[in-house]
């Protein structure tokens, strides 16, 4: 009797071990291995169109210090990351409060609010291009109602183009942040709101003292994921402006791809990718740490 029982106990363990091994294997092959290969490449002058490549030590990393394009791309990336994170989360909280009802119409509106998150970045880029281009929908509408006399270069002026990308990405991310904040709002016990009502706490005061502290875990998740998403932003920019005009909207991720596939500098591109990885990790860890401390203090 004991034998079969041992087998029954062992079977699920083996099954779990197999699943874990599969997951670990995939993680190693598709994440750790490319990371290590990229790290190795960052110490070389690898060029896919050259017969031989040499180990050059830290030269790629020292070159980064004097790279104006890299500096500009980091500035664009960080500006977008912080601006978009704030905007997308503010929108998310707002939409979530508005949509925190249970009727059918609100469920439909929730789906609509989540829609931008479902669309591919490439499609989003093309759709907004038709809106923002010189003779696009926005200029046509603004000229029709008499707000503009002539088309405004939304994508042709460096500052406006960056702002437009920020708006588009914030719109996309607002779908995700809305869902996160909706889940957080729905996890608040109704008793808390009832007690607050009995105490005469209403409106903005209730939001500040009850809702905001209770959705803190959702804020941590939403802010961290928003930041990471924008730090590695590529697709929307590639389609909407291709980093132009004159590299004014070039994110670091876009710069890495250009270095590797236009300038053939795979070694240097790998070094920049390592920098972006370290920067993303640093920002994510710092922000997550700060938000977790905030959760405890609230």
């Amino acid at each position: 009797m004991s034998g079969p029982r041992r087998r029954r106990r062992g079977t699920p363990d083996r099954g779990l071990a197999l699943l874990a091994a599969l997951a670990l294997g995939l993680y190693l092959v598709f994440l750790v291995l490319p990371l290590l290969l990229s790290l190795r490449s960052s110490f070389t002058n690898e060029n896919p169109l050259r017969a031989t490549n040499d180990f050059i030590g830290l030269r790629n990393y020292t070159e980064m210090a004097g790279d104006d394009q890299l500096r500009a791309s980091l500035k664009v990336t960080l500006l977008l990351a912080f601006g978009v994170t704030v905007a997308a989360n503010a929108l998310g909280v707002g939409f979530a409060i508005l949509l925190n009802r249970t009727s059918l119409s609100y469920r439909v509106m929730r789906t609509v609010a989540f829609l931008p998150q479902v669309l591919s970045g490439v499609i989003v880029g093309f759709v907004w291009q038709t809106i923002l281009t010189q003779n696009g929908v926005l200029n046509t509408a603004l000229m029709t109602v008499g707000i503009l006399d002539e088309p405004y270069p939304w994508l042709g002026s460096p500052n406006a183009a960056l702002l437009c990308i920020g708006v588009v990405v914030a719109w996309v991310l607002s779908g995700f942040t809305t869902v996160v904040y909706l889940a957080a709002l729905q996890s608040i016990p109704l008793e808390l709101h009832d007690m607050a009502s009995l105490d005469g706490v209403r409106g903005s005061q209730r939001f500040r003292t009850v809702t905001w502290p209770m959705i803190a875990p959702g804020t941590t998740i939403s802010v961290t994921i928003s930041l990471i998403t924008v730090l590695k932003l590529y697709d929307v920019i590639a389609v909407l402006t291709a980093g132009g005009p004159a590299n004014s909207t070039q994110s670091t991720a876009l710069y890495i791809v250009k270095l590797a596939f236009t300038s053939d500098r795979v070694g240097y591109a790998s070094a920049v990718a390592m920098l972006l990885l370290a920067l993303s990790a640093l920002v994510a860890l710092t922000v997550t740490g700060a938000l977790r401390r905030r959760e405890v203090s609230l």
């Binding site: 923002l132 281009t133 010189q134 003779n135 002539e150 088309p151 405004y152 270069p153 939304w154 994508l155 042709g156 002026s157 183009a161 132009g244 005009p245 004159a246």
Partner: peptide
């Protein structure tokens, strides 16, 4: 055109 950097090639 002042907004020439916003004009696509096809346009």
């Amino acid at each position: 055109d002042k907004g020439a950097l916003g004009v696509k090639y096809a346009d």
